[in-house]
């Protein structure tokens, strides 16, 4: 623990800005992944515990596309769509069979997929860590200096892009017909079904969208981090924390919680370098005890 260092950092503008930008980047990337998890939970009522493995799959797919085409944007797109497709297959082939089963069966089904996918990527891509995708050429330019802090342009791109996705998601949920149907299905899927909406299709679609977001997050994160089997473990836990803190099923809540966690990680890394993970779990416990439905969740959770 190093509270003096944390105090110093909060006192100097360069460190403050640098860590804030870092926290925003971490938080918004986390939002991409966590929003998928919370979307799926909100409508289907299941926790896709294999969500982190979808994130990992996104990173690998992006790496493969990058190796073939050398186009970063294409790689991100392919990863998102590929994982989305995989999500549909997973939902139709497996998850939909255990919606009525109890929590134990759902958790174990996802656990099985975590184990299988972790080994499959080793079989396909080998055991060695794959290097990160690297940032696209357009962003190979000198960083900005804001208040004495170094701000890489690419981080601003990730922050901007993720915010854009968040806004698009919000517009989709509030302004489109399918968004309204989705929200109605969160309240009462049986009623929605009775009104002539094909809920199986809706469920598959939501699962596809949620998985797509995980793949997107994985691909973007792979631009700067190395890719390895098992990289999804910590991600699914973090996404879960974000989901719980924000309120299960609440996308707005996930946004706020992801930023909160991003900042905790960024500044916690200075103050409590070894206990940042623990700090996130402490936050989650506090929320669960004081406000079980989450910051922006519906009550009665």
């Amino acid at each position: 623990m190093d509270l003096a260092a944390l105090g110093d950092c909060l006192g100097t503008s360069s460190c403050l800005i640098f860590q804030t930008v870092g926290g925003l980047k971490i938080g918004l990337l986390m939002f991409l992944v966590a929003s998928g998890l919370t979307l799926i939970f909100g409508v289907l009522g299941v926790i896709n515990f294999a969500h982190g493995s979808f994130y990992m799959l996104g990173a690998y797919l992006a790496w493969q596309t990058m190796a073939l085409t050398d186009n970063f944007y294409l790689a991100v797109l392919a990863a998102a769509l590929g994982v989305g497709l995989f999500g549909v297959l997973f939902e139709r082939g497996f998850m939909s069979r255990v919606y009525r089963g109890d929590v134990l069966v759902q958790i174990l089904l996802c656990y099985a997929f975590i184990l299988i996918l972790d080994d499959l990527v080793i079989i396909v891509w080998g055991e060695e860590f794959l290097s990160s995708l690297g940032i696209p050429d357009a962003f190979h330019r000198p960083p900005l200096f804001v208040g004495g802090a170094i701000v890489p342009v690419f981080h601003l791109f990730i922050i901007g892009f993720s915010t854009l996705v968040a806004v698009a998601l919000w517009l989709f949920m509030t302004r489109t017909k399918w968004g309204k149907i989705t929200r109605a299905a969160e309240q009462n899927p049986l009623m929605v079904s009775a009104l002539g909406i094909n809920t199986s299709l809706l469920f598959a679609g939501i699962f596809a969208l949620g998985s797509l977001l995980a793949g997107l997050g994985g691909a973007l994160a792979a631009s700067e981090r190395s890719i390895s089997s098992g990289m999804g473990f910590s991600v699914v836990l973090e996404s879960f924390i974000v989901t719980v803190i924000g309120g299960m099923g609440s996308i707005g809540g996930a946004f706020v919680a992801a930023l909160l966690i991003g900042m905790t990680r960024s500044f916690g890394a200075i103050g409590f370098p070894l206990f940042t993970d623990g700090l996130m779990f402490v936050l989650m416990c506090l929320v669960l005890v004081l406000r079980p439905q989450g910051l922006m969740g519906r009550s009665g959770g």
Partner: peptide
């Protein structure tokens, strides 16, 4: 590939 086998057994 223990995880792969275990995962299939769970399924």
């Amino acid at each position: 590939y223990y995880g792969l086998v275990l995962g299939l057994v769970i399924l």
